[in-house]
């Protein structure tokens, strides 16, 4: 470190305070349809590219490979397999609440039958020795659903 002239007797640090900066994210047609699928049909919807046949979940407007608008909706059901998982053990601040997240927390990628991409969610198992890549999992829906990704409470191994 370089020597600073006229060194202050104390080095101060200021916090940005507690003021929240709230955003209102617009879901658009595709994400809205997906969330309504969770809320009203308790099912997971994907969208198929009519040019290359890839099925995307979460659904989005454009297939990046073909640069074509997608309109063919696919009901993927509620069961898939674990593509990858990780048990998070290092707590960090939850950007939604400002509080530390609860650990251990298991994040998974769910591979639905008939989809080419994967959905992220939680698994209700915190012990990594009891989780297997390729294991079948099933979405557990909440009773009260509000049109968010948390309408699925978590996935559970079947």
């Amino acid at each position: 470190m370089e020597e600073k002239p006229n060194q202050a007797t104390e080095l101060l640090e200021l916090s940005s305070g507690k003021a929240e900066h709230v955003y209102y994210w617009h879901c658009g047609y595709y994400t809205s349809r997906f969330l309504l699928g969770l809320r009203d049909q308790t099912t997971i919807l994907g969208v198929r590219c009519s040019a290359c046949g890839r099925v995307y979940v979460p659904p989005r407007e454009v297939c990046g490979r073909c640069f074509k608008t997608m309109n063919e909706w696919v009901d993927l059901g509620t069961e898939g397999t674990i593509y990858a998982f990780t048990v998070v053990k290092l707590p960090y601040v939850d950007p939604n609440t400002g509080l530390p997240i609860k650990v251990p927390r298991t994040d998974i990628y769910v591979q639905f039958d008939g989809a080419d991409t994967r959905l992220m969610h939680w698994l209700d198992e915190g012990d990594e020795t009891k989780i297997k890549v390729g294991a079948r999992v099933k979405a557990v829906f909440k009773k009260e659903r509000r049109g968010t990704i948390h309408d699925i409470e978590y996935f559970t191994q079947v």
Binding site: F34, P58, D94, M120, W122
Partner: peptide, 26 residues
């Protein structure tokens, strides 16, 4: 780590993304 977790889609993926370490561990 909290800031990086907001790189995941806020509506669909943010709450399931424990930063850069998760995918690399997997």
């Amino acid at each position: 780590q909290a800031a990086i977790s907001t790189c995941a889609d806020p509506i669909l993926e943010r709450d399931f993304f424990g930063g850069a370490i998760g995918p690399n561990a997997a």
